[in-house]
Structures are given as structure tokens and as C-alpha cells.
């Protein structure tokens, strides 16, 4: 009996072995390595001495780090906006407006296109001679036709617009899924009782899909820290100055674009890792959600 049990256990372990092995080699090892290297003055070549926390201390002294961090927090504006728009969209979809399936498909479209392509389209659209300015000039407001990507507020605005634009569909579909799990009879009876759209929204829908919103919020915040690279790369390239550089872009910049900065790049990566890990700890509900799927 114990022999059989042991054999069963061995088979189970062998079953998860490939996944665990891949994650150990391609996730755990690099993370360990990055933490170790963040404590060295590695220049990408042969200089590789332990220098303790000096990289971190230097990073905390620089202006660009704090600016970059500030940019990340400013970029968070995209999260509430996309959630609100996504929520409104999902509720309207839920009301089964004519053609709602078509609109749902349409809104989701940007999600399946590569973020870089979306980024390049935004860069073209908001370039000085691009369609947006052309429209503004045509509409008789040439004063508004400015260099969108040349100044911090407008450049960040363009990036945020892109983030919202690409995510509305995702939010809409996600929230619609949440709404669909609500028992329709609750909703119908409220409608019968003469509750208008806003009453239905605030008193019935929002409380019931609170968990979905919470999930979406945490997910989107984590995404804002780690998923912005292609947008920044294609729209502003982090510029002007460090005005639109985000932490994930900065790691790439330091590691693969500038000389002699690999130790520092690793330290930045560790900081990014720490932030994302804290967010992930908040995310325990995530697995609960998945568990409820099959029901």
C-alpha cells in the first residue's frame, strides 16, 4: 500500500516536474541572479565586484528615478478611467442594445493587436503633422495643433489615452462577464419597480460586481507597472528628457541601451520586482476567481 502510494506520489511529482523545472531555470534563477548582480558594479564586461547597496543608494539620489516613479503614478490615472468607461460600456452591453455583440467584438479589437502597433499608430496620429492636428486645423483651431509629444503633460496624456483606448474592450468584456453572473431576476424586478438606469447601476449592479472591479483594479495597476514598455518605446521613447519614462522602460534603457550600467539596471529591476510583488500579494483573490469559473 505505501509502495503504491509512493509510486503514485512519484508520478504526481513527475507530472509537475516540467513546469517546476522550467520556472526554476527561467524564473527563479534569473531573479536570484538579478538580485545578486544588483549588489555589484557590473559593467557588462569584466568589472563585477560586490559593492553592497551602493547601486540602490545612488539610484535613490538621482532625479531620474523619482521622476520615473512619479510618471508611473501619474500613469495610474488610466486605471480608474478605463474601469469607469469599461463599466459603462458593459452595462450598456448588458442592456442588450441592438448590435451589442458586434460592438463587444469591435471594442475588444485593440486588445488583439500588438501594443507596439497601437503605439506606432498613436505616435503617427499625434505627430505634429498627423491626423489629430490636421483635424484641429481643419476645425479652425490651429492654436490647438501643438507638438503633442514634445511636452510632458501632453505626451503623458497621449500615452494614457492609448492605454485607456486599448483597454476599454478588455474591461467591458470582463465586467460584462461579472454582470452576467448576476441573477437576472433581481435586475428585472428592479426594472419593473421603475428603477431608472442610474438607480439600477448604483444600487444593484455596482455592489454585486464589486469583486470583479477589485480584481480589474489590482490587475490594471500591476499592468501599469510592467506592461507599458511597448507603448513608451513606440510613442515617446521615454522622452523628452525622462518625462515619459516609466520604471519598466528604464530597466530596458539602463540594461540594453546605455553603457556600464548593468549593476544599476539590475537594482532598478529589483525595485520593480519588489513593487510588483507587493501588488501581487494583494492579489490572492485572483486564484479564487479562477476557481469559481468552472461553476
Amino acid at each position: 500500500m505505501t509502495d503504491r502510494k509512493r509510486k503514485e506520489l512519484t508520478i504526481s511529482l513527475l507530472g509537475i516536474a516540467p513546469a517546476v523545472l522550467v520556472l526554476l531555470v527561467f524564473r527563479a534563477y534569473p531573479i536570484g541572479s538579478v538580485i545578486w548582480n544588483s549588489l555589484t558594479n557590473w559593467d557588462g564586461l569584466f568589472k563585477h565586484d560586490f559593492i553592497g547597496l551602493r547601486n540602490y543608494l545612488r539610484i535613490f539620489r538621482t532625479d531620474y528615478f523619482w521622476k520615473t516613479l512619479a510618471n508611473c503614478f501619474i500613469m495610474f490615472i488610466n486605471v480608474p478611467i478605463q474601469i469607469v468607461i469599461g463599466l459603462v460600456v458593459s452595462m450598456l452591453l448588458y442592456e442588450k442594445t441592438p448590435g451589442w455583440r458586434f460592438f463587444r467584438s469591435l471594442y475588444y479589437l485593440p486588445q488583439i493587436v500588438s501594443a507596439v502597433i497601437v503605439g506606432y499608430l498613436f505616435a503617427i496620429f499625434f505627430s505634429y503633422d498627423g491626423p489629430v492636428n490636421e483635424l484641429l486645423r481643419f476645425a479652425g483651431a490651429p492654436k490647438l495643433a501643438i507638438e503633442w509629444l514634445g511636452r510632458r503633460p501632453t505626451a503623458i496624456g497621449v500615452v494614457i489615452t492609448a492605454l485607456i483606448w486599448i483597454n476599454i474592450g478588455w474591461q467591458g468584456v470582463l465586467m460584462l462577464g461579472g454582470l452576467s453572473s448576476i441573477n437576472p431576476s433581481v435586475f428585472e424586478s428592479a426594472k419593473m419597480d421603475g428603477a431608472n438606469f442610474f438607480q439600477r447601476t448604483f444600487y444593484i449592479l455596482l455592489p454585486m460586481i464589486g469583486r470583479v472591479i477589485e480584481y480589474s483594479f489590482i490587475y490594471s495597476v500591476a499592468w501599469t507597472f510592467t506592461g507599458l514598455f511597448p507603448f513608451i518605446y513606440s510613442i515617446t521613447n521615454g522622452g523628452p528628457g525622462y518625462d515619459t519614462t516609466t520604471l519598466d522602460f528604464l530597466v530596458y534603457q539602463k540594461a540594453f541601451r546605455e553603457d556600464s550600467a548593468l549593476g544599476e539596471a539590475c537594482a532598478l529591476a529589483v525595485i520593480l520586482l519588489a513593487i510588483v510583488s507587493v501588488l501581487t500579494l494583494f492579489q490572492r483573490r485572483l486564484s479564487d476567481r479562477a476557481n469559481s469559473w468552472s461553476e
Binding site: L23, F26, Y29, I31, V251, L262, A265, C266, A269, T280
Partner: peptide
């Protein structure tokens, strides 16, 4: 083990890419 695996879901690629490179 399952929880640890799920936890690694959000590890940003930027972090692992430098050593992997």
C-alpha cells in the same frame, strides 16, 4: 507549490531578461 507558481505570474519580464540574455 501551486500558489508559488501562480505568484510568479506577475514577475515582469524586464527583471528576468537581463540574466537570461
Amino acid at each position: 507549490v501551486y500558489l508559488v507558481i501562480i505568484f510568479s505570474m506577475f514577475m515582469p519580464n524586464q527583471v528576468t531578461l537581463i540574466p537570461l540574455y
